[in-house]
Computed example of a mutant assay.
Amino acid sequence: MSSVRVDSWVWGVRLAKTRSQATSACRAGHVRINDQTAKAAQSVKLGDVVKVRLHGFDKIYRVTGLPTKRGSAVEAAKHFEDLTPPPLPREERPSEIYRDRGAGRPTKRERRDIDRLRGRDSATGVEFGDDEDL
């Protein structure tokens, strides 16, 4: 067998739970073969690059085998090579600042501390109360 339907391949390598979900993903445009949108009946061959959008993330796979039926996860892993790049590191942000409910409005000092924690220091360096400019 030199090729297999793309929806059958997506189902066979366990990227979709059912064959109908794989077909729906193809119809919705979530499956691409060699950077072209794939229809469910389009054939996939050894060496093709298949991009699948799963749970909001794009996954990239190279076809290394053509399963005829759905097998175990270990068996399915033999039919593709994962080419997905690693995710970008998360930005380091200061922890969110929470106030107890019903604690009232923050004082001026607390607001300045909050701004300092969030990285919003005053750029001018002028503090309130400096009357030299008046």
Rank of each mutant, 00 (worst) to 15 (best):
S2G: 11
V4T: 11
V4G: 00
R5H: 11
S8C: 09
S8M: 10
W9P: 04
V10W: 03
G12W: 01
L15P: 01
A16K: 05
A16I: 02
R19N: 08
Q21E: 13
A22D: 04
A25P: 01
C26K: 01
R27T: 03
R27N: 10
A28M: 09
G29A: 07
V31Y: 01
R32D: 02
R32Q: 12
I33T: 03
I33G: 00
Q36T: 14
Q36F: 05
T37A: 14
A38C: 12
K39T: 14
A40H: 12
A41V: 13
D48G: 05
V49R: 13
V50D: 01
V50N: 03
K51N: 07
K51C: 06
K51E: 12
R53G: 00
H55G: 08
H55S: 14
G56K: 10
K59L: 09
I60P: 01
Y61G: 00
Y61P: 00
R62T: 08
V63G: 00
T64L: 09
G65E: 05
G65M: 06
L66Y: 04
T68K: 14
T68M: 12
G71E: 11
G71S: 12
G71A: 11
G71K: 06
S72Q: 03
S72I: 02
S72D: 13
S72C: 03
A73K: 07
A73I: 07
V74G: 09
E75D: 13
E75W: 05
A77M: 10
A77Y: 01
K78Y: 06
K78W: 06
K78I: 05
F80M: 00
D82I: 01
T84N: 08
T84A: 09
P85N: 13
P86C: 06
P87W: 02
L88W: 03
R90T: 13
E91P: 04
E91W: 06
E92K: 15
E92G: 03
R93T: 09
P94H: 09
S95H: 12
E96G: 13
E96C: 09
I97Q: 05
I97R: 03
I97N: 01
Y98N: 10
Y98K: 15
Y98D: 04
R99P: 04
R99I: 15
R101G: 07
R101E: 14
G102K: 08
A103E: 14
A103P: 05
A103V: 10
G104V: 04
G104C: 07
G104Y: 05
P106L: 11
P106G: 10
P106R: 12
T107S: 15
T107F: 05
K108T: 14
K108R: 14
K108S: 15
E110P: 02
E110H: 10
E110N: 07
R111N: 09
D115K: 12
L117F: 02
R118H: 08
R120H: 12
D121A: 12
A123Y: 05
A123N: 03
T124P: 02
G125W: 07
E127P: 00
D130C: 12
E132I: 11
L134P: 00
